[in-house]
Structure formats: structure tokens, C-alpha cells
């Protein structure tokens, strides 16, 4: 297997240039797909026979909730990479993605509450998935809190890697325990591996908005990483050249 891409990924300079090409594209394509998915879902997809129109929040709630979990998983993997291979970009990734994931978890909580009102009659139900998203949100807050509390860059990077890795190991256990503790929620609506139980006109827009949101988040994270890389590598010659040529 060819590992050059892996070593290249360790080089901030290479990443910076790569991200300048791909960051913007991801954001714009993502936004377009997201818009298509949401407009289609909210305006044109058929009604749910049980929940009527209120189910349409699914086109925001589900992608956001799934993305919030994916972001944390990615942070955990980056934490492992950072501790084992000391790759320079891994802590940059964690630092840049954490706020994105935290916001996704927050939106998932809020949209879940809004969805809960017509479905269950209350804003909040101690149901398994809402509770585990709440815990996920708290885990994000923990990562960001320790990041802000430590002044020393090297130490902060290590600490954040440890916290994300420990969090990722715990996340499935937490999810399992919370599910075991209480299952009130309807079964998962959308799984990639199984044949969806929704008609195609209903899940296709969901697929659009999910892919759109992933791309959008990836692009935004790349932008954030670029900023962080510029700040960390400010003494390097290529950064000086880059800033002189293109401005900030």
C-alpha cells in the first residue's frame, strides 16, 4: 500500500494548500445539496401517515444528530493518531472540529425538543436518544473547556487528544447504557445498511441533506484548520510567503 498520502497529511504546508482547493468546494457543493434536500423535504416530500407534517423536521434533525456523532468519532480517531504517531495536524483537527460538532449536537437537541412537542406533547422526554445527545453535547463541552483552560499548546494538544479518545471509547458504552435504561423513542428511521422503511420520495431528500451537511461541515472544518495552521506555523517561511502573496 502506498502511504505517501498519510505522510503528506502530516505536513501542515501540504494540507494548507490542499484545503485551499477543497475547502471552498466542499462548502458550496454542501450548501447546495443541503438546500435541495431541505426544500424538497419541507416542501414536496409526502406527509407521514401518522405524524402528518411535523415529521418534516427529520430533514434537519437526523442529519444534524448523525453528524454530531460522526464528528466526535472523528475526533477520537484523531486523538489516537495524535498520541500514537504525534501527527501535527491531528490536534489541529480536534480543535477545529470540536465547536462544529458541539453546535450540531446543540441543534439536534433543540430540533429534537421541537419535534417532541407535537409528537409526545412535551418539549423534553427522557428518552434514550435525546439523553445520549445531551451527554454527547456535554462531552464536547468538556473537550472545549480543557482546550481553553490550558495555556501551553503542547500540553493542551495532549490533553484534548486524551479526552477525545477516552470519550470515544466511552461513547458506545454510554449509548448502550442509556438505551438499556430507557427506550421510548421510535426505532431509528434511517440506516445506511438496511433497506429503508420509508418510501423513496421521503428518504431521498434526507440523503441529500445529510450528504450536503457532511460536506458543508467538512469544508467549514477545513477553513478552521487552515486558520489554526497559519497561527501555529506563523514562524515558518512558507506562511510568510503565503501571507505576502495572498494576504490573510
Amino acid at each position: 500500500m502506498n502511504w505517501t498520502w498519510f505522510h503528506k497529511l502530516g505536513s501542515p504546508k501540504w494540507f494548507y494548500q490542499w484545503a485551499s482547493n477543497w475547502g471552498g468546494r466542499c462548502v458550496y457543493v454542501g450548501l447546495a445539496l443541503l438546500l435541495v434536500g431541505v426544500v424538497w423535504g419541507l416542501g414536496f416530500a409526502p406527509q407521514d401517515y401518522q405524524q402528518g407534517n411535523s415529521f418534516r423536521i427529520i430533514y434537519i434533525h437526523v442529519p444534524v444528530a448523525v453528524l454530531a456523532q460522526s464528528c466526535y468519532l472523528a475526533m477520537g480517531i484523531a486523538g489516537f493518531v495524535s498520541l500514537v504517531w504525534q501527527m501535527k495536524l491531528a490536534p489541529v483537527f480536534i480543535k477545529s472540529v470540536a465547536p462544529v460538532g458541539a453546535i450540531m449536537a446543540l441543534i439536534a437537541l433543540v430540533s429534537g425538543a421541537i419535534w417532541g412537542k407535537p409528537t409526545w406533547g412535551t418539549w423534553w422526554v427522557w428518552d434514550a436518544r435525546l439523553t445520549s445527545v445531551l451527554v454527547l453535547f456535554l462531552l464536547y463541552m468538556g473537550v472545549m473547556a480543557i482546550q481553553n483552560a490550558l495555556d501551553d499548546q503542547v500540553f493542551a494538544d495532549k490533553a484534548v487528544a486524551v479526552v477525545s479518545l477516552v470519550g470515544v471509547i466511552n461513547l458506545p458504552i454510554i449509548k448502550y447504557s442509556v438505551e438499556w435504561w430507557n427506550t421510548l423513542h421510535q426505532p431509528a428511521t434511517f440506516k445506511l445498511t438496511e433497506k429503508p422503511s420509508m418510501p423513496m420520495e421521503m428518504w431521498l431528500p434526507l440523503l441529500f441533506s445529510a450528504i450536503g451537511l457532511y460536506l458543508f461541515a467538512a469544508g467549514v472544518s477545513m477553513w478552521r484548520m487552515q486558520t489554526e495552521v497559519l497561527m501555529r506555523e506563523r514562524k515558518a517561511n512558507w506562511v510568510k510567503k503565503e501571507v505576502l502573496e495572498h494576504g490573510i
Partner: peptide
């Protein structure tokens, strides 16, 4: 800060113990 970091990780233990 330590409470914020660690308490969420205690949830499974508390859930299964009280269970």
C-alpha cells in the same frame, strides 16, 4: 473542569448499578 470532563463518563456505571 475535572467534574465536567469526568461526570459524563460515569453515566454507564450509575445506570447499570442502579439498574
Amino acid at each position: 473542569l475535572m467534574l465536567l470532563l469526568i461526570l459524563p463518563l460515569y453515566i454507564p456505571v450509575i445506570v447499570f448499578a442502579t439498574g
